[in-house]
Design a protein around this nucleic acid. Structure first.
Length: 371
DNA sequence: ATGTGC
């Protein structure tokens, strides 16, 4: 099988992608630069690998006792949470749901603050907001059950509605990174600085998960339903591992915490992954989505030049995105083919899909801001 | 990514 490329003779970098997957050269170059980081042991990149601001996105990086906050980045705790609704697709009035979801942020503001405080004791500005970039709240329907028994075990019924929430710690993550320094030297895991970063980091991770929960519960109420958590997996975080090691995940979901959503939002289906044992070189990690194939600036320029005619979404879902620049930057064709990413995951034995979901309504922002 | 930069 011609997958699992090593990118160096020293075998400290492995890309879990087949030749059929588009991997930008710049992202592999960023990956290899990680070798110069203090304490670097190895890195595992997934098929959604793409270049990022400070380093590659779509990879896991293990060090010998050194935390690199700048590799985790600003959106500490960003992740994907999947919730089942107690509503069937045939019971849904799509036009009503589309209209109601426009008021998601207002509904959070109007919500019961005591309830919010119970969900998120560390209430902070930004709680209950989706944010920008590739963040979203998406109403989906389960349209294929690849593993009937696994779906039954988790109460995942065909034709039932779900909410997939992608957001993070909002202003808290950037604040934590700023407070603890962004130098490339990193922090020693056992040092007071390392311990202090981890404590603030863990709060941001918890805040982000609470944010996803609050958004899902509010969105559920807007469509007259209740949300039940299926799984919540962060993909920007760091964790101590046995033997004094430190595992960073930058746009990579954990493969050792149960079911993991693989989003293909807006123009593509999403999947629910059941992790498999997989090779140790994968650093217990999975892709966190399709991954960008075009950067944001390029997408924005194309839209301004007017050479990209608006395209209907292949799956016909409705999108709430009043910010035109965001809509251009996050257009479905800015992303890789999710089916190809899934194929790489399954061929490498990292995980398999147990269910597939089709988008119905995607909420990004109801506020017009972009050019 | 960011209670959004030049």
């Amino acid at each position: 099988m011609n997958i699992h490329h090593w990118t160096g003779a020293d075998r400290r970098f492995r890309v879990f992608a087949s030749p059929a997957s588009w991997i930008e050269g710049a992202s592999v170059a960023q990956l290899r630069l990680l070798a110069g980081r203090r304490g670097f042991l190895s890195a595992a990149a997934m098929a959604d690998l793409h270049p990022g601001h400070k380093g590659p996105v779509g990879c896991a990086i293990e060090t010998e006792g050194v935390i690199h906050p700048d590799l985790v980045g600003t959106d500490i705790g960003c992740g994907m949470a999947l919730f089942a609704l107690d509503i069937e697709q045939r019971q849904l009035h799509i036009d009503k749901a589309f209209k109601a979801l426009h008021g998601l942020h207002e509904a959070v503001d109007a919500g019961d603050r005591a309830h919010q405080a119970a969900i998120a004791p560390d209430y902070a500005p930004g709680m209950g907001t989706v944010g920008g970039g590739n963040h979203f709240v998406e109403l989906q329907v389960l349209d294929d059950r690849a593993d009937e028994a696994a779906c039954d075990a988790h109460g995942l019924r065909r034709g039932a509605l779900f909410l997939l929430v992608h957001t993070g710690s909002r202003s808290l993550g950037p604040e934590v990174l700023e407070r603890h320094g962004v130098g490339e030297r990193g922090l020693d895991l056992q040092s007071p600085e390392g311990i202090a970063y981890l404590a603030d980091h863990d709060r941001a991770v918890a805040f982000a998960a609470a944010n996803r929960k609050l958004l899902a519960e509010t969105a559920a109420s807007l469509v007259r339903g209740n949300a039940r958590l299926i799984t919540d997996q962060p993909h920007n975080f760091v964790e101590p591992r046995p033997g004094g090691r430190v595992l960073h995940r930058k746009g990579a979901a954990p493969a050792d915490r149960g079911l993991s959503p693989l989003p293909g939002s807006r123009g593509a289906q999403s999947h629910l992954l059941l992790p498999e044992a997989g090779p140790g070189e994968a650093l217990a990690s999975l892709p966190h989505g399709a991954g960008r194939k075009r950067d944001r600036a390029g997408m924005s320029d194309r839209a301004k030049d007017g050479d990209r005619p608006p395209r209907a979404n292949p799956l016909g879902n409705r999108i709430i995105c009043a910010d035109r620049r965001m809509a251009a930057e996050e257009a479905p064709d800015a992303y890789k083919n999710i089916a190809r990413v899934l194929a790489d995951v399954e061929e490498a034995g990292l995980a398999r899909s147990i269910a597939r979901f089709r988008p119905i309504v995607t909420f990004k922002t109801a506020e017009a801001r972009g050019r």
